[in-house]
Nucleic acid binder design. Structure first.
Lengths: 142, 142
DNA sequence: GTCACTGCAAAGCCTTTGCAATGGG
DNA sequence: CCCATTGCAAAGGCTTTGCAGTGAC
């Protein structure tokens, strides 16, 4: 598992300060990795531990973590999801239950043949949609 | 170029009615293909021709076209972009100028090795981010 | 001591909804 | 004719902003 220090050092390297609120968010996402989180879900999960924190602060922290390169984000149906898996992969979104699953995909083979046309690619995000295994099973049972 | 009839027939096949407003939107996106449009940009572009149309109606029409399978959408920085290119490809978003460019990518080679794990994949959307050729040129000139 | 961060409230942006009137099939 | 669609206004969901007070370094 990735250590708390990894997130802290990355923040420091990008000139962010280490606050208790940031530690709490780090511990939460680190403890639930790999996974996919909305700002609100994180807020609800940690507010008992950090009673004065607000949703705006959670957004602020997630932005800092993202800018430090330790988390990624993806947008699905108008809401932003964050994930600790920064290695390239596919995010499979189930249109039935809304869950998001990681799918292994080789970035090299994906991008090696791309005609970049002079553009500089810094990041790639693959979103797949469909029906997940468990929802297909439920449908079959009806 | 794809004909107007293609969009109209697709709508009919999905039991949508053909209204003047829908024709106007179809003609606009068809005439600007391939390209990437926000609902608001389409609304602004066509409101002189269709003076009573509202943004809500444009959203409604885009939803119908998407559900009929003739356009795709992607979310970037909180706003939805629509495109007529329904063949799989990468959408390269320039983080400097905000423009979106299509990149050819072979879907087969991308997905052939994926362990689908029982999930049914219906759609794939690849968003790439970075700095586009023309913005790199501008940066180099400074 | 300074400047970034927090907490709070309010605003902002994009998109959807509710509803009466209209018109396409 | 009927029901989907339109136009309008208002609401809704998610995210950001402004600002005073606090605290990390």
């Amino acid at each position: 598992m990735v250590e708390r220090e990894y997130y802290i050092n990355s923040l420091k390297r990008s000139n962010y300060k280490i606050t208790p609120q940031r530690i709490t968010v780090i511990d939460y996402v680190k403890g639930h990795s790999p996974g996919h989180f909305t700002a609100e879900a994180i807020y609800n999960a940690i507010k008992s531990e950090e009673p004065t924190i607000t949703l705006a602060t959670v957004y602020n922290i997630l932005k800092a973590l993202q800018s430090a390169g330790t988390i990624h984000s993806l947008e699905v149906n108008g809401t932003t999801w964050f994930e600790t898996n920064t290695k390239f992969h596919g995010n499979f979104v189930c249109d039935v239950c809304g869950n998001i699953y990681d799918l292994d995909i080789d970035e090299a083979s994906l991008l090696e043949d791309v005609d970049r046309d002079g553009n500089e690619i810094k990041q790639a995000s693959l979103i797949l949609r469909g029906v997940c295994r468990s929802c297909r099973k439920k449908e079959a049972d009806r």
